[in-house]
Each structure stands twice: as structure tokens, then as C-alpha cells.
Nucleic acid binder design. Structure first.
Length: 427
DNA sequence: TCTGGGGTCCTAGGACCC
DNA sequence: TCTGGGGTCCTAGGACCC
């Protein structure tokens, strides 16, 4: 049997652990750039706030109800996620970390015990040790465990833990679950399925596999089989290296000057290279993209991308920045208000497995330079040394304000990872 | 005025190989 | 009059996830 454990309103819950006075106050956490609400407390959901609602539309509601607002604090959430994972390890054979707030557990070592009771004890311990509330779904396939979890969250009488002991118990719930709530069924497929008269998860589970394959693809077919209790996926325990890596941000203010775009893209290129080196990886294809805001429909729109490849994988910030800047210059078209840009790295492989080029000898000086830069920045803080292209000089010779940088006006402290931001108790 | 970021997998079609 | 069979790799587009 598998358990799917998922944290309730995870980002909001993280904020509340360290801000207990706001436990009953409606609270939202914003996306990067303070753009829209991506996590809501139950009280905020009850006020009608939806996932993805833009902040500026919520202003009146925020003022009227004293809604607590927080900027995205990834460092805090990642740290809390790690704590939750450590507790889960104690209650499972194997644990697959599925996302920052979800994990699949192998419960086979506990099959002799009452699994619902096991789930309740696990939930209580996560709550007590980390302060994070979780929901638990238990079933014999991953897709059904997701469905059980969904049910548990919607029905408080379950204690937020629900177990399908057999297929009949699963079917009872699937009959009441809309098809678009099924894990793996997104809005497009849901619309197609509903057009074919398939409205509930149970309807979907009864669909002939050949039809499922035709209407969706092999992924959709697997979902149908899993709903019937046929196991198609097991726990994914291997730490695979990512196949691509993206660094991109929406701008705090629209970018209209090429120099600003160059500084922004150079910054993202450096961040992407930092990440590659941190993971011991190199990449051979880089794609730079820039786009206007699709929401500003009365303005001219543009979305453009251009890339470059290297024969031997690299994570050298200088080299990638040079290529990225050339891409920006080739793509740049004036007269637009750009809202976002970024860089994608692909063709990723382990740095120490990289295939050397016949005409391109290894460059130890590049590795040494990057290592020195990383050491300095680790000790003295990010960007202590950086590529000049990532900065803007004013005419007076000083640094120019970086208007493109994202907004974060409601940032909470890094309670768990930064000595200078620890909570202070005054007796 | 203001609307997130970072991933994965599958399929079809085209180019190429022997 | 008649012109093969069996592959791989790459890319773009479309779907999904959190």
C-alpha cells in the first residue's frame, strides 16, 4: 500500500509556525514579484480568494478583512519541507519526495497494523514536531492514494486521514469525485472526457483502455488503469539529474531599454550557472527568452527566444553570459514593454562525466576561476563578486537602480536558516 | 499601475543513417 | 513495367504536475 502525504496550505502553514498570532486570521502567500496569491489559508479561501488571483484585485478585500500577506520565502519553505520529510521517514519503508509539500510512502512494512491508525499517528507526529498540518491518503495505487488524500482533506470527519482498504471502498469515493479532480487529468483532458459523457472519477475508471489511449495518450491510459486498482507506477526513489534548468523572473517594472535587459539576462545566466555548479552539472544548450505581458492586451505583444550550443558542456558563468548577451542583442526589438525574461539550460550532464571535445581541451583555469568565485560568494554573500554585465552603471559612475528586480514587499524572516533572523524571545 | 516559476513525459513529423 | 526495409535522433507542440 502507498500513502500520499501532503501538507495543508503549505506556504501559509510555514508562515504560521513562526507567527502564531495569525493562526485564525486569513492569510495568503504571494508568488514571486508579489504578483498573485498562490497559497491561501482556509479563512482566505472562505473569503472567496482563488489560486492565482492577482494582488491588486485583492486589495479591497485585504483592507476590509485584515488579511495577512506574505511574499514568497522559498528558503523557509524548503527548510520546513525537509523537516517534514525527516518525520515521514520514520513511518515508511521508502519515501518518494514528490514535491515541496508532498511525498509518497511505501507502507509495506506496516501492512500488519491498522493503516488508518498508522496514518493518524504519523499526522500527529508531523504536527507536533514541525507545526505543519498534513493530510494522508492510503491505497494500493498512487492515483488512488491521491484520491483518498483528496477525500480526507474535504471531509473533516476522517481526521484528514483516509484509507481505501479495497476497491469497493475506492469506488464509493470515485463515484463522488469529479473527473477533473483526478491526478493526471488536467483541464484539457477533462473537457474532452466530459464531452464523451465521463463526469466522475468512477466513469473514468470504467472507460475501455483503448478509448482512453485514443482520447488521451499512454499516460491517460495508465491513469484509468490505476483508478481500477491496477498498479502502473511504483515509488520513484532514484535521484535523477534534471534534464533542464530554468532561471527566469517577471520584472518588477517593465523593461524598455536594451541595457536593462542585458543586465537582467546576465543575472539569470549567472544564477543558472551557479545552480549547475552547485549540483556538479554542465549544460551544452542555452536558450534565452523574453516576452511582454499577455495581460496588457492593449500593448504590442512579443515573445522571442534564441539559443546557442557549446560542443563541450559548460557551467562557466563568463562563457554563458557572453552567449546570453549575444542572444539578447540578436533578439532585441525596441518599442515593447518587456515583462519577463529568462534562460533555459539543456543537454545537462554530470560535470565529471562530460565528453571532452577533440579540438577543445579542458580549461582548468575556467574551473579554478569559478571555484574561487563560488568560495568568495559563499563566505561573503551572494553577488559579492559578479559579472560586470549583470550590473548597470549610471552616468555619474555609481550603480544604477535595478528597476527590473522583482518586488518582495512582505518578506518574512528566514527563521530556520539564518542566524541573524532567528526569533527573539524576550523574558 | 499591478497577473509565478520550474519541471516532466508523449507524439508526430522530418532528416538522416545503412 | 518495374524503385526496400529498418532504424535513430531531433524538434516542436501539447498535455500534465506542484
Amino acid at each position: 500500500m502507498y500513502a500520499l502525504v501532503d501538507c495543508n496550505n503549505f506556504y501559509v502553514s510555514c508562515e504560521r509556525v513562526f507567527d502564531p498570532c495569525f493562526r485564525r486570521v486569513p492569510t495568503i502567500v504571494l508568488s514571486n514579484n508579489d504578483g498573485c496569491a498562490i497559497a491561501r489559508s482556509q479563512e482566505a479561501t472562505d473569503l472567496g480568494i482563488k489560486m492565482g488571483d492577482p494582488l491588486f484585485e485583492l486589495r479591497p478585500l485585504i483592507d476590509r478583512h485584515g488579511i495577512q500577506v506574505r511574499s514568497f520565502n522559498y528558503t523557509l519553505y524548503a527548510s520546513m519541507s525537509h523537516r517534514v520529510q525527516q518525520v515521514l521517514q520514520l513511518h515508511a519503508g521508502d519515501v518518494e519526495i514528490y514535491s515541496i509539500d508532498e511525498a509518497f510512502l511505501d507502507l509495506s512494512p506496516f501492512m500488519a497494523s491498522d493503516l488508518k491508525g498508522h496514518g493518524l499517528r504519523m499526522k500527529a507526529q508531523v504536527q507536533q514536531w514541525t507545526g505543519i498540518p498534513v493530510g494522508v491518503g492510503i491505497a494500493h495505487t498512487k492515483t488512488l492514494a491521491k484520491a483518498a488524500n483528496h477525500w480526507a482533506k474535504k471531509h473533516p470527519d476522517t481526521g484528514q486521514v483516509h484509507c481505501f482498504r479495497n476497491q469497493d471502498e475506492a469506488d464509493d469515493v470515485l463515484r463522488q469525485q469529479p473527473v477533473d479532480d483526478v491526478w493526471g487529468i488536467g483541464p484539457r483532458w477533462a473537457a474532452k472526457l466530459e464531452a464523451h459523457g465521463i463526469k466522475t472519477a468512477y466513469d473514468l475508471s470504467r472507460m475501455p483502455t483503448a478509448d482512453a489511449r485514443k482520447l488521451m495518450n499512454v499516460v491517460g491510459e495508465r491513469t484509468v488503469r490505476e483508478l481500477r486498482g491496477e498498479r502502473c507506477g511504483s515509488l520513484d526513489l532514484e535521484a535523477t539529474t534534471a534534464k533542464s534548468l530554468v532561471r527566469s523572473r517577471s520584472f518588477g517594472n517593465p523593461v524598455t531599454e536594451r541595457a536593462e535587459m542585458e543586465a537582467a539576462v546576465a543575472t539569470y545566466a549567472a544564477r543558472a550557472c551557479d545552480k549547475l555548479r552547485h549540483r556538479g552539472l554542465v549544460a551544452s544548450t542555452f536558450t534565452v527568452f523574453m516576452q511582454t505581458s499577455r495581460f496588457r492586451t492593449n500593448e504590442p505583444q512579443r515573445s522571442a527566444s534564441a539559443g546557442f550550443s557549446v560542443t563541450v558542456g559548460t557551467s562557466d558563468t563568463l562563457r554563458v553570459t557572453a552567449g546570453a548577451l549575444a542572444a539578447v542583442r540578436s533578439l532585441w526589438a525596441p518599442g515593447y514593454r518587456y515583462a519577463k525574461a529568462g534562460i533555459m539550460a539543456a543537454g545537462i550532464e554530470q560535470a565529471d562525466h562530460r565528453q571532452p571535445g577533440l579540438f577543445e581541451p579542458a580549461n582548468p583555469r575556467s574551473d579554478q576561476l569559478m571555484a574561487a568565485m563560488d568560495t568568495i560568494n559563499r563566505r561573503h554573500g551572494r553577488d559579492t563578486v559578479r559579472v560586470a554585465a549583470a550590473t548597470l552603471r549610471s552616468k555619474q559612475g555609481g550603480w544604477k537602480k535595478e528597476n527590473w528586480k522583482m518586488k518582495q514587499d512582505h518578506h518574512s524572516p528566514q527563521f530556520t536558516t539564518n542566524w541573524s533572523e532567528l526569533m527573539l524571545a524576550v523574558a
